Structures are given as C-alpha cells and as structure tokens.
Amino acid sequence: AAKKRKLSTEQVNLLETSFGNEHKLESERKDRLASELGLDPRQVAVWFQNRRARWKNKKLEEEYTKLKNVHESTVVEKCRLESEVLKLKEQLSEAEKEIQRLVERVEGVSISNSPSSSLSINAMDAQVPFLGDFGVEGYDDVFYMPGMEGWINLYM
C-alpha cells in the first residue's frame, strides 16, 4: 500500500477550484486532474468523495439552522398571540360585566317605579337607535349604548 501523504496547498486549491465548478467527477476529468497534480487517480476520486460528504453536511447544517430559526420565531409569535388572546378574553369579560351592570340598572329602574308612575321605563319603550333605522344595511345587530364606549355588536 502506498504511503498516504498530505496534499500540498497548491494541490488542495486546484482540487477546490475544480470541485467548485463541478461536484461530480467523470473519468476523463479525474485522470486529467491526477496528472496535473501528480497524484494517483484513485486519490483524486477519494478526495472528491470526501469533499462531497463535507459539502453535504455543511448544507444540512445550514438547512437545520434556517429551520431552527423559523421554528423559534414561530414559537415567539405563538406566545405573543396567546398573550393577545388572554388580553382580549379579559376585555370581553369586562364588557360582559358592564353589560350585566347596565341591564341590572335598567331592570332596577323598571321595578322600582310603580306602573302608575309616569317615569316607568320599559326596555321596549327605550328608544335605542339601531343602525338599521338609519338606512345602513347589514348593521341591525349593532347599536349605541349610552355609558359604553361607542357601538356594540350583539353577535361578537
């Protein structure tokens, strides 16, 4: 068996340049490189094989890093969205409590006044302007409630 010797910098540079042009090595090119470099064609073939393996590993590492970064940013976005959902649920809960307080206030006024009282307030008598009354189509379920912040959609 021939003693394994280290390739010179010039030999490695020429092999690298050749590899950069084409990763595969057909027989004619292998023989030409071997004679240019003063190497055995088998050495050239083995060098190319090893270089392809290193190149493939490097590509896999790069792909892994890219996927890992995408995964991490997706996890961060998921956490941000979950936090936003919690805040929105809290806001919804507060709005529902406010609606309940207003309903109780209206019912309280209705009950506390006797039917003979001229101040009787019935939920049906209260003139709550529905947007539909203003000729805006498709907004029958949205109305303005005094004391609340703006318009309310009943079917949120």
Rank of each mutant, 00 (worst) to 15 (best):
E28F: 10
K66H: 11
Y64L: 08
V44F: 01
T65Q: 15
L25S: 01
W47F: 15
V46A: 07
R29C: 01
E22P: 01
G38S: 12
E62Y: 08
K59V: 12
W47Q: 03
R52L: 14
Y64Q: 05
L60I: 15
K30H: 02
E61A: 13
G38K: 06
P41L: 12
Y64G: 01
D31H: 06
S27E: 11
F48G: 03
R32C: 02
H23M: 06
E61T: 13
K66Y: 14
D31E: 14
W55Q: 10
L37G: 05
E61V: 13
R29M: 02
R54I: 12
N57G: 10
K24F: 15
V44C: 02
N57V: 08
E63N: 11
L39F: 10
A45I: 00
E22Y: 07
R54T: 10
R54N: 04
N57T: 13
L37P: 04
V44D: 02
E36T: 10
V46H: 11
L39Q: 06
K56G: 03
H23T: 11
V46Q: 12
N50L: 10
R32K: 14
K58Q: 13
L25T: 03
T65K: 14
L60E: 12
K56C: 01
L39R: 09
F48Y: 15
Q49C: 06
P41I: 07
R29V: 13
K30Y: 01
K66M: 12
L33K: 03
Y64S: 03
A34C: 04
S27I: 09
Q43C: 05
R51S: 10
T65G: 01
Y64A: 08
V44M: 02
R54E: 13
E62S: 06
R42L: 06
L33A: 07
L60Y: 06
K59P: 00
S27W: 02
E62I: 14
N57P: 00
L39C: 08
S35W: 04
L37M: 06
D31Y: 09
Y64N: 05
K56P: 00
D40V: 09
W47E: 04
L39H: 05
K59A: 13
L37H: 07
R52Q: 14
V44S: 01
E61Y: 07
L25K: 01
K24C: 04
R52M: 11
E63F: 07
W55P: 00
L39I: 03
Q49N: 12
K56E: 15
P41G: 10
K58I: 10
W55K: 07
R32G: 00
L39K: 09
N50K: 12
L33V: 04
L25V: 01
R52A: 07
L37Y: 05
K30V: 02
W47M: 02
E36A: 08
A45E: 12
H23L: 08
H23F: 04
E63V: 09
E22I: 05
R32M: 05
T65I: 11
Y64W: 09
V44P: 02
A45T: 00
R29P: 00
A53S: 09
V44A: 04
R54F: 12
A45W: 09
E61P: 00
S35M: 08
W47R: 04
L60M: 09
S27A: 12
K30R: 15
